[in-house]
C-alpha cells in the first residue's frame, strides 16, 4: 500500500480527497499547513506528497524547495496543487513552475477527481 501525504489548509478538500485516494488503495496522511507538512514528511517518509501552494505558515513552493534540497527526501515525488490563476488550461503541467521547484507534477484546482487519481497513479508508478 502506497503512503500519500496530502498537505492542504482546506479541511473539507482534505477530507474528501482522503476518501477518494483511500478508495484507490492508498494510505492517506493529512497536514494543514506547510510546516506541519514538512515535519510529517520527515517522520512518515511517504511515497508521494501532494502540496497545496497557498497555505499559512509556509507555502507549497517553499516546502517543495526544501524537500528537493534535502538528499534524504529529494527522491519523494511531489505534486503541486493550486487554485491560483496560473494557466489557462486547468490540467496543464507548467514546465516553468515545475523546474523552479523541481515538482514532479503540477495540477490546477479545481481538479476533476478522476484526473487527480490518474495523475497520482502516474507519479507513483514512475519507478
Amino acid at each position: 500500500m502506497k503512503k500519500v501525504l496530502l498537505v492542504d489548509d482546506d479541511v473539507d478538500f482534505c477530507e474528501a480527497t482522503k476518501i477518494l485516494l483511500e478508495s484507490k488503495a492508498c494510505e492517506v496522511i493529512l497536514a494543514h499547513d506547510g510546516k506541519e507538512g514538512l515535519e510529517k514528511v520527515r517522520v512518515e517518509k511517504p511515497d508521494l506528497v501532494i502540496l497545496d501552494v497557498m497555505m499559512p505558515e509556509m507555502n507549497g513552493y517553499d516546502v517543495c524547495v526544501v524537500l528537493k534540497a534535502d538528499p534524504e527526501l529529494s527522491k519523494i515525488p511531489v505534486i503541486l496543487l493550486t487554485a491560483v490563476d496560473q494557466a489557462i488550461f486547468r490540467t496543464t503541467y507548467t514546465p516553468h513552475m515545475g523546474l523552479m521547484t523541481e515538482a514532479d507534477d503540477y495540477i490546477a484546482k479545481p481538479v476533476e477527481p478522476t484526473e487527480l487519481v490518474s495523475r497520482v497513479e502516474n507519479v507513483l508508478n514512475k519507478d
Binding site: 473539507d12 478538500f13 474528501a16 477518494l20 487554485a83 479545481p110 481538479v111 476533476e112 477527481p113
Partner: peptide
Amino acid sequence: SSLLMQISV
C-alpha cells in the same frame, strides 16, 4: 474545488 471533490466522492 472542495465542493467538486466532496460531491464526486
